[in-house]
Structures are given as C-alpha cells and as structure tokens.
C-alpha cells in the first residue's frame, strides 16, 4: 500500500516505535519499566522483548501492506501476554487506539500542510479500530483458553480420584474449591 502517510511513517519508524512502545509499557510499574525496556534480552526479558518485537512488526505492517494475517500474528503474542497480567482489556488494548494520537502529534505539520491527505489518515484510523476489535477477540480467546485449561485440570484430577475410588465420599461444599465468602454470597 503506497501512500504519503506510509512513507512518512516508514521514515520515522524508529521514533514512532520508541514512543509507541513507551505507551505500551507505561502499563507496568516503574520498577519493572527499567527492566522491560532492555528489549535486546530476548530470553531474560521475555515480556519487554516480545512486546517490542511484535510492535516493531506491527508498525512495519501499518506503514506497508497491512496484511491481515501478519497483523493478526503480531498482535497475538502481545494480547496473550497481557491476558495473564492482571490487565483489564481496556488497558491491555489501549496501545492500539493510542497510535492515532501518536500519528496526529508526530505528523502535525504534514497534516496541516496537506502533505498527508485526510483519506489516508482515515484509512489508518479505521484499520486501527479494526485491529482493536481483533485484539479484543484475541484477549478474550486467551482468557477462554485459561478457563478451559482450568477445567481440563479439574477433570483430570477428578478422573484420577475416580479411578482410585476416592470420590465415594460426598463432596463437602463448604470447603471444596472455596474462593471467598464474598463471591459465594453474591
């Protein structure tokens, strides 16, 4: 996809990526930040390096062909990570719509001068909206998988106990898989 916006984004790839990545990892506490920015440590900093690498690829796609499969692939790992990090979806996904503001700010002059046509901006923003929706799918799928893994483990344990005839006694529901008074009363 050849456009002036894409051309500008490619030229500013490094700057955009740095700022975009900062937005994404602002989600983590300050103490973690200084470790998560060491993105070259692929194996000793898996969160930071995976998010950075995939955002790098996403940015390349966004300023290029915007191939749906590749975009999906790069988003997947980021959302998988965030789905297990105590993050609500709004925060896990916020880096995607945030990119709009980044583009507006970074290319303010070019937009004002009309070097970047409105239609190109609109295209990019529409694609980012779609990506945010896809990202929500990915986040939800990851959560569903988590619950399924949990159920699978409960079933496996149950099977073992059943095989060993240890499930004959009635389950005491007062203690069995008890989460909290608060939740149960709800």
């Amino acid at each position: 996809m050849s456009s002036s916006l894409n051309q500008f984004m490619r030229e500013k790839h490094g700057d955009l990526l740095r700022q975009w990545f900062e937005i994404a990892i602002a989600a983590y506490p300050d103490e973690a930040h200084k470790y998560f920015v060491k993105v070259n440590n692929e194996f000793t900093n898996p969160v930071g390096s995976n998010i950075y690498r995939n955002m790098d690829h996403l940015l390349t796609e966004l300023s290029g062909d915007r191939d749906a499969d590749r975009l999906y692939g790069h988003l997947e790992m980021i959302l998988k990570i965030r789905a297990v990090q105590d993050m609500k979806p709004s925060k896990a996904l916020a880096f995607l719509p945030s990119f709009k503001n980044l583009v507006r700010t970074e290319f303010k002059k070019e937009i004002q001068k009309g070097q970047i046509p409105y239609s190109e901006l609109d295209d990019l923003f529409t694609d980012l909206d779609t990506l945010a929706l896809i990202a929500f799918d990915l986040y939800s799928e990851s959560k569903e998988l988590l619950y399924n893994l949990r159920i699978a483990q409960i079933k496996e344990t149950n099977d073992i106990l059943q095989k060993a005839n240890l499930l004959n006694e009635a389950v005491d529901t007062s203690t069995f898989m008890r989460c909290s008074n608060y939740i149960e009363e709800e």
Partner: peptide, 29 residues
C-alpha cells in the same frame, strides 16, 4: 479518558510506599 491514559490508570503502583500498600486478592492469582 484518552486511550493512552488508559494504559496508566491504576497500573502505576499507588503513591504510597511499598511498605504501606495492601495486596488485593483477585481470583486467578
């Protein structure tokens, strides 16, 4: 809030020192 603000809300640790911050028991953790 703006999207970029969403990444920060309640994710930054509270302003209190680490010694004064109570933990939250959220299911799954």
């Amino acid at each position: 809030p703006k999207p970029q603000e969403l990444t920060k809300i309640d994710f930054k640790p509270p302003e209190t020192s680490w010694m004064d911050t109570p933990v939250e028991f959220r299911p799954g953790t």
